[in-house]
Design a binder for these strands. Structure first.
Lengths: 104, 104
DNA sequence: ACAATGCATAAGGTTATGCTTATATGTGTG
DNA sequence: CACACATATAAGCATAACCTTATGCATTGT
């Protein structure tokens, strides 16, 4: 109940959302993420700490590199929360259903 | 791409999320929402303006009352965004599938 | 051992955010 | 027409958020 708010807040910053989406595409060390955006390395690290605190990403350290990757269960609370509202957009059900069949 | 960020930001505040969830349960005028939370009426109005700006709620004026209700299409961008990541939490699929069958 | 690299944390400044009280606007009511 | 009521907006304040530069701490390479 209060956890979704934290997730929303974590993804509410454009830079942080972009970083998250990049990580979601593929795991990457801080160095690479820093090169990707126009903010300093400490800023990236701070965003990563926020994402980690929100349970959205994980770290894997290898030598002096810290690889950040998507935490698979991270978005689950959001999905659960969202499913509460599915009754309100029936036009969406069809597409979601199709997507699920694809996965099966 | 930048629109989700706005939605996330709108729901990132605990008070605002609570107001949104209340509205989602049922349409209500500002007066009633104000009674429900321990913040002033202007604060509620400001949160409502933010939710409206994010496309999450609608207003229906009746006399001097302003009824706020869920905008059915409001969460769609979020659902679309989230569906991108479904591949990453397969354990969730089953429950979602069950939910969809229920709706059918 | 020393220098360089990758990352995290500290400190500080600027802007954004969320709240309050005060006030304006519009709508019913006596 | 005056007055109460419902809501929105304005102004101001305290705190949080996000960024920067500076620095600390490991780890790797020479």
């Amino acid at each position: 109940m209060q956890r979704e708010s934290a997730i929303f807040r974590a993804l509410g910053d454009p830079s942080r959302l972009a970083i998250f989406e990049s990580i979601a595409r593929r795991e990457a060390p801080v160095k690479e993420l820093t090169a990707q955006f126009r903010i300093s390395q400490p800023a990236v690290s701070q965003h990563l700490a926020a994402l980690r605190k929100a349970g959205l990403v994980t770290v894997r350290r290898d030598g002096r590199l810290a690889y950040y990757g998507l935490k698979s269960s991270g978005l689950k609370p959001l999905a659960d929360w969202l499913s509460h509202f599915q009754a309100f957009w029936p036009e969406r059900i069809g597409r979601l259903n199709a997507l699920l069949k694809e996965v099966d």
